[in-house]
Write a protein that binds this DNA or RNA. Structure first.
Lengths: 233, 233
DNA sequence: GCAAAAGTGTTTGGATTACACCCATGC
DNA sequence: GCATGGGTGTAATCCAAACACTTTTGC
């Protein structure tokens, strides 16, 4: 590399963080897990959970650590979103953040109390308040990435309960793309997605109970590898 | 944030760089502009052009600086790709790199000699040698992102010459998706893309000369904003 | 029986595919 | 005239949208 205006050593003065957007799905809405900050800067503001990355820590490892601290969940696949590095984005120094996101089943666990936060809450993506730092921008960009993935990869099944009805499935897409869909046509569209129809039905509903389904991950993987199928919504 | 195993100050010991993948299209092939490194580490290896980011410099600014130094081109839209942060990826310290990419018209300019490099060359994406650092991985991930964009945004017209034939257009997609297409059907597919047919033809070809077209950016923008059209390939 | 949502079938028009054929240019 | 690609039309098929209709449950 060429001549620099500053010493080589003086480049090593930045910190970087991983912000971790945890998406869930509940009551027909996609939600993100946000925390209320317990300390300055931006004390009492809602924020995306995030943390500085240790000097010898890889990025996905840091993202998994944050997820685990907040939710106790382990071995969840992390997806990388965008990076945000405006020099003034953090009041205490140059901090570049690499946003990641995870998709979880809300009913699988209880969120944990955390030393970071006064409060923690699942917030529907159409009701997000003003957040700390540039976190509104980060959340919006990352939601766009999620929507992208929802169209081309079967990540919807990481958000849906293990056993779900076709209507819950449809409503997830209706929420994400803000568009009503026809029930019959939706079912034709998903015809080739490998689902297993369970011998089980909804309970305690005051209408005809819907059949429950589960995603057939093994068959999906096989067909994917054999180039027989590619997910598309 | 919670208790740390190290002092807050000790987090500010990383550097970060921007690597800039410059894609071009020529002779039916998508190519990337690579440099041959003039210094250690990885001296004499081919690499993606990149540079450390100054402590007060924003990421897109750094990417534009690198592009300008190499090509003299200015005001080219930069796209962000992924970030790569393995603790051992750089032998001289912790360097996180945020990959960016730009799409340029190869015939628009001459690449510049650079203080960084012994040599500089347009390399077709199916002929890339072993690169320095983790640059093969970075290039592959970024090419996947480009292909994604080629399907949903009219970025192909940043790669094609200002005036292009429909066959050049088709071959760009055939190269990217490694798939032959039917000429007649390709032309039906692009029927709704706003193109301007010029009163001009290919010259010096030993067959019937093809009509030249140009992308109608104004009409595209209008229809996009009016929600009348969305690009799809 | 009624409300509410589950679940399925039919029709239609537009898009995709495969393929055939004619046209203009250089040599 | 022939080789080479440019350029267009047709028919068969597939797919998506619109919509109607039947089924099963709770009350």
């Amino acid at each position: 590399m060429g001549m620099y205006k500053i010493e080589f050593h003086d480049f090593f003065t930045a910190a970087f963080s991983v912000d971790c957007i945890i998406f869930g799905y509940e009551a027909g809405q996609i939600k993100a897990l946000l925390i209320k900050r317990a300390m300055e800067p931006y004390e009492n503001f809602w924020a995306i959970p995030g943390d500085l990355v240790y000097p010898d820590e890889d990025l996905p490892v840091a993202a998994e650590r944050i997820l685990k601290e907040l939710t106790g969940l382990d071995h969840i696949q992390m997806h990388q979103s965008q990076s945000f590095g405006h020099p003034k984005r953090h009041p205490q120094g140059r901090v570049i953040t690499i946003a990641h996101f995870a998709l979880v089943r809300i009913e699988d666990f209880q969120v944990k109390a955390s030393s970071w936060a006064d409060d923690i809450s699942w917030v529907p993506l159409n009701e997000v308040p003003t957040l700390a730092f540039d976190h509104n921008h980060i959340l919006e960009s990352t939601y766009e990435m999620l929507k992208q993935k929802l169209q081309t990869e079967p990540v919807c099944f990481d958000l849906l309960p293990e056993r779900f009805t076709l209507n819950e499935f449809q409503q997830l897409y209706e929420f994400a793309f803000e568009q009503e869909m026809d029930k019959a046509n939706f079912r034709k569209k998903i015809k080739y997605i490998p689902l297993i129809a369970l011998n089980e039905k909804q309970k305690n509903v005051k209408h005809r109970p819907a059949k429950l389904f589960t995603f057939d991950r093994d068959t999906y993987q096989q067909r994917l590898l054999a180039n027989e199928y590619s997910f598309k919504m």
